[in-house]
């Protein structure tokens, strides 16, 4: 009985198509395990080997990895939301209402995007705390800490720009608080808030600007910064451990 699936598996593995996809056997030997990691575009972010210490959950709390995970979840759910949402004062609110009442799984989709966004602010914050208290910003990782500071800032901006989009009372007045802060910027308050919000009050321009920042500019910036962040972790010799 079992010979048939075994034969099919064998045939598949030696087939022309399979071998064009995977250039190594099943990763049960050291050689194939290495190949599995560095011939795969998604896995090759990793080195082939890491120090055992780097696997310890009490050390990293997994918070950097989970921040990245939430960023991916947000990109996915956010893209799906974009199919239903129009950033104009006529449609924004009713599109969100429709998501909740008409679109199948729309409410779940919106909830996931919302809670993952709150989660990411928390995980990034905790990640920063762990990096600081383990002294992981010290040479040669100075620059990666700077990249991290930018990531922290952009993560908050991403959350904040997204907050306006439902265009309900909650989002409108919460963002008004930020608008008033921007206007109070010393020396360039009026110019700064005019550029950021597209006017001297929160209206259609602000909604459109926040939308473009939220779905294009900021995710791109964060994506690039994460790429640099990860690259630097490798180039700086992997994550820290006791000297």
């Amino acid at each position: 009985m079992l010979e048939i699936p075994a034969q099919i598996w064998q045939r598949t593995k030696t087939s022309y198509i399979w071998r064009s996809l995977f250039r190594h056997g099943y990763p049960d030997s050291r050689k194939n395990q290495s190949l599995a990691v560095f011939t795969n575009v998604f896995l090759h972010l990793h080195p082939v080997k890491v120090r055992r210490h780097a696997l310890a959950i009490p050390y990293t709390w997994c918070m950097g990895g989970l921040s990245f995970f939430l960023f991916l979840v947000l990109t996915l759910t956010g893209t799906l939301l974009m199919f239903y949402y129009r950033p104009t004062t006529e449609w924004a609110y009713s599109d969100i209402k429709d998501l909740e009442t008409v679109v199948i799984f729309g409410q779940l989709l919106r909830n996931m995007h919302r809670w993952a966004a709150h989660g990411m602010v928390i995980t990034v914050f905790l990640h920063m705390i762990r990096v600081f208290y383990t002294g992981s910003y010290k040479p040669p990782r100075e620059f990666n800490w700077v990249i991290g500071t930018l990531l922290f800032f952009f993560t908050i901006l991403l959350s904040y720009t997204g907050y306006l989009l439902p265009w309900d009372q909650l989002s409108f007045w919460a963002v008004t608080v930020g608008y008033e802060i921007a206007r109070a910027t010393p020396f360039i308050g009026d110019e700064f808030s005019f550029v950021l919000f597209g006017g001297f009050q929160l209206g259609p321009n602000a909604l459109l600007r926040f939308y473009v920042l939220h779905v294009v500019a900021l995710p791109l910036a964060v994506g690039f910064l994460i790429a640099i962040h990860f690259w630097r972790i490798r180039k700086d010799g992997g994550i820290t451990g006791p000297l």
Binding site: P27, R30, Q33, S34, A36, V37, L43, H46, P47, V48, K49, V50, R51, R52, H53, A54, L55, I57, C62, P140, K235, D236, G237, G241, L243
Partner: peptide, 18 residues
């Protein structure tokens, strides 16, 4: 970079599983 000879683990499977 600090690279020391140490106790290492293969990424596949140990890290990927986590």
């Amino acid at each position: 970079v600090d690279k020391r000879v140490e106790d290492t683990a293969m990424v596949w499977p140990h890290l990927l599983v986590i």
